[in-house]
C-alpha cells in the first residue's frame, strides 16, 4: 500500500466518522457551531497523530517482544489518557495560546473512541512506523473534514423550519446518515 493510497483512504474512503462510525459522540456534540467544530478538529489532529505514534512504539517495543499483545486494549487506554494529560500540561506552560484555543476539547478527547480506534486500526494493518504516522494524520484530517462539513450543514439547519419532534439532535442524526451515504460514493476508489 503506497502513501497516496493511505492518505486518500484515510481521509475519504475509510473516513473515521462517516465510514467507520468511530467518535460519533463529539461528531454530534461539537458540531452545532463552526467555531467549536474547528477547535475540536484541531485538537483531534494533534492528539490522534501523537497517540498513533506512541501506541505504535509501545506495541512494537514492549507488547510484541514480551508476548503481551492481548493486553493492548488496556495498555493503549492508559497510555492515551496519560498522554493527553501530559500534552495538556505541556501546552498550558509552553504554548498558552494553543492551550486557550483548544480549551475544553483537549481533555475531552481522552475518552474519544476515534483516537483509540485509529490506533488499533494502525496496528491491525501491520503498518510501518512512517505509514502509521501518515495514516494517523489522514484519519485525523478525515475526522476534521467530516466534522467541519457537518457543522456547516447544521448551522444552516438551525435557520430552517424543522418539525418540532425532529429538532436538534434528531435532525442531526438524520443529516449524519445522509452525509455518511454521500461518503459511500468514495467506496471502490482504492
Amino acid at each position: 500500500m503506497g502513501y497516496m493510497e493511505i492518505i486518500i483512504g484515510g481521509i475519504f474512503v475509510n473516513n473515521i466518522l462517516l465510514a467507520q462510525f468511530l467518535g460519533n459522540c463529539p461528531f454530534l456534540g461539537t458540531s452545532k457551531k463552526m467555531e467549536t467544530a474547528v477547535g475540536m478538529a484541531m485538537a483531534v489532529v494533534f492528539v490522534l497523530v501523537l497517540a498513533g505514534v506512541i501506541t505504535w512504539l509501545l506495541y512494537a517495543f514492549f507488547l510484541v517482544p514480551y508476548k503481551l499483545v492481548y493486553m493492548r486494549t488496556i495498555a493503549f487506554i492508559l497510555v492515551i489518557a496519560s498522554l493527553v494529560q501530559f500534552v495538556e500540561m505541556f501546552l498550558k506552560k509552553s504554548i498558552p495560546a494553543l492551550y486557550a484555543g483548544l480549551g475544553i476539547f483537549l481533555p475531552l478527547i481522552t475518552t474519544n473512541c476515534a483516537v483509540f480506534g485509529a490506533c488499533i486500526l494502525n496496528i491491525d494493518k501491520e503498518l510501518s512506523f512512517m505509514k502509521t504516522l501518515v495514516q494517523s494524520t489522514a484519519y485525523a484530517m478525515g475526522f476534521g473534514l467530516a466534522l467541519i462539513l457537518f457543522a456547516g450543514v447544521r448551522e444552516r439547519i438551525i435557520l430552517s423550519r424543522v418539525p418540532k419532534p425532529l429538532q436538534d439532535t434528531s435532525i442531526g442524526l438524520v443529516t449524519a446518515g445522509i452525509l455518511s451515504l454521500t461518503f459511500y460514493a468514495f467506496k471502490g476508489m482504492i
Partner: peptide, 22 residues
C-alpha cells in the same frame, strides 16, 4: 507490565505537573 506502565505514567505525569506548573 501494567504495574510498570502505570508507575511510569504516574511518575511522568507527577513530574510534568511540577515542571510545567503554571
Amino acid at each position: 507490565f501494567m504495574l510498570g506502565l502505570g508507575a511510569l505514567c504516574g511518575v511522568v505525569l507527577s513530574a510534568a505537573s511540577k515542571i510545567f506548573y503554571v
